Amino acid sequence: MGTMRILRVYEEPGPDEYRILVDRLWPRGIRKDRVDVWLKDAGPSTEVRNAFGHVPEHFAAFVKDYRAELATNPAVDEIRALAKEHEKVVLLYSAKDHRQNQAAVLLDFLNGVDTPGA
């Protein structure tokens, strides 16, 4: 497995990075050619996403609930398989907060570490 990082979908990825969008909803203003694959099922459920609402005080509960979903989510295996196929992978998200978002939680989950601030 190569390197994996997160990046806001509105920012420029590095050269040769395989771009995986992990939002459940398609981000506004983004063309399809900016993403290699859209794994919307990798994103949190509508219930978990709406309960978080990008309110910092709700982040710890969001992390707990989202990680519970990820534990049985087949999209996690898809991401791991893609990471084996590509040297550089970037998980794309559209949230404005660079630390408190689902891609950060997902990356920590994939790396087997706890999310800071949870």
Rank of each mutant, 00 (worst) to 15 (best):
M1D: 08
G2M: 10
G2I: 11
M4V: 11
R8C: 01
R8H: 01
V9D: 01
Y10Q: 07
Y10D: 03
Y10V: 07
E11D: 11
G14W: 06
P15T: 14
D16S: 05
R19T: 06
I20F: 04
I20M: 04
I20S: 01
L21W: 06
L21E: 06
L21Y: 00
V22Q: 08
V22M: 12
L25F: 15
L25D: 15
P27T: 08
R28N: 13
G29I: 14
R31C: 02
K32M: 10
K32W: 08
D33K: 10
D33M: 10
R34K: 15
R34P: 11
D36A: 11
V37Y: 01
V37K: 05
W38I: 06
W38P: 03
K40Y: 08
K40H: 11
D41H: 13
D41Y: 06
A42E: 09
A42L: 15
G43T: 12
P44Y: 03
S45I: 06
S45W: 02
R49W: 14
R49M: 11
N50Q: 14
F52H: 00
G53A: 08
H54N: 09
V55G: 05
P56G: 00
P56Y: 00
E57M: 07
E57A: 13
E57N: 07
F59C: 07
A60S: 12
A60R: 15
A61G: 12
F62H: 10
F62N: 13
F62S: 13
D65Y: 04
Y66C: 01
A68I: 02
E69G: 00
E69K: 13
A71L: 14
T72Q: 14
T72Y: 14
N73V: 15
P74A: 08
A75Q: 12
V76L: 07
V76R: 06
D77R: 13
D77H: 08
D77L: 14
E78P: 03
E78Y: 04
I79C: 09
I79F: 04
R80P: 02
L82W: 08
L82N: 10
L82E: 14
A83K: 13
K84V: 10
K84S: 10
K84A: 15
K84M: 11
E85G: 05
E85V: 11
K88F: 05
K88M: 07
V89I: 06
V89E: 03
V90Q: 04
L91D: 03
Y93H: 07
S94W: 14
S94C: 04
A95E: 08
H98G: 07
R99E: 12
R99S: 08
Q100Y: 10
Q100C: 10
N101H: 00
N101G: 04
Q102S: 11
Q102F: 07
A103N: 09
A104Q: 05
A104W: 03
V105H: 02
V105K: 06
V105Q: 00
L106I: 05
L107N: 01
L107W: 00
L107K: 10
D108R: 15
F109I: 01
L110W: 00
L110H: 03
N111W: 02
N111K: 13
G112H: 02
G112F: 07
T115P: 03
T115Y: 09
T115D: 05
P116N: 02
A118K: 12
